[in-house]
Simulated scan of single mutants.
Amino acid sequence: MQPFVPASWVQDRDVAVVDVREPWEYDSIGHLPGAVNVPFDAFRSDEGEAGKLPPRAEWESLLADAGVGSDAEIVAYDDTQGVFAARFVVTALLLGHDPGRLHVLDGDFSSWQREHETTTDTVDPEAASYESDPDAETPLVDFETVRALLPAIEAGDVTLVDTREDWEFEEGHIPGAVQLDWRELVDEERRGLRPADELRALLADRGIDPKRRAVLYCNTARRVSHTYLVLRQLGYESVDLYEGSLTEWQERGGELVTG
Rank of each mutant, 00 (worst) to 15 (best):
Q2L: 11
R13A: 04
D14A: 14
A16V: 05
V17Q: 01
V20F: 00
V20C: 00
V20G: 00
R21D: 00
E22F: 03
W24S: 07
Y26L: 08
D27M: 10
I29D: 12
I29S: 11
H31A: 05
H31P: 07
L32E: 05
P33R: 07
A35Q: 07
V36M: 02
V36A: 04
V36Y: 02
N37T: 07
F40W: 09
R44G: 10
R44L: 12
D46G: 12
E47R: 11
E49N: 07
K52P: 07
K52H: 11
R56H: 03
R56V: 05
A57K: 08
S61I: 06
L62H: 04
L62P: 09
L63C: 01
G69R: 01
A72L: 03
I74T: 08
V75H: 00
V75T: 03
A76V: 04
T80N: 10
V83K: 07
A86N: 09
V89K: 03
L93P: 08
L95Y: 02
L105P: 06
G107T: 00
D108N: 14
F109G: 00
F109Q: 00
S110I: 08
W112I: 01
Q113M: 14
R114H: 08
E117R: 13
E117D: 11
T119G: 01
T120V: 15
V123N: 09
A128S: 15
A128H: 04
E131C: 10
E137K: 06
E137Y: 05
E137T: 13
T138C: 10
L140Y: 09
F143G: 06
F143S: 03
V146F: 10
R147Q: 14
A148I: 01
L149A: 13
L149E: 11
P151L: 01
P151S: 00
I153M: 01
I153E: 00
A155K: 01
A155L: 01
A155Y: 00
D157L: 07
D157K: 13
V158P: 03
T159E: 06
V161L: 06
D162L: 06
R164F: 03
W167P: 06
E168T: 11
F169N: 08
E170Y: 10
E171G: 15
E171K: 13
I174M: 13
P175M: 09
G176R: 11
W182L: 10
R183L: 14
E184L: 15
E184P: 11
V186W: 00
R190V: 13
G192I: 09
L193G: 02
L193D: 04
A196C: 09
A196H: 15
A201H: 11
L202G: 03
A204E: 13
D205T: 12
D205E: 15
R212L: 15
R212V: 07
R213L: 06
R213G: 08
V215P: 07
V215M: 02
Y217C: 05
N219V: 12
N219E: 11
R223H: 12
R223T: 12
S225H: 00
H226N: 05
R232G: 05
Q233N: 04
L234F: 01
Y236G: 04
V239F: 02
Y242H: 04
Y242F: 12
E243P: 02
T247C: 07
E248R: 12
E251D: 13
E251S: 15
R252K: 14
G253P: 12
G259S: 15
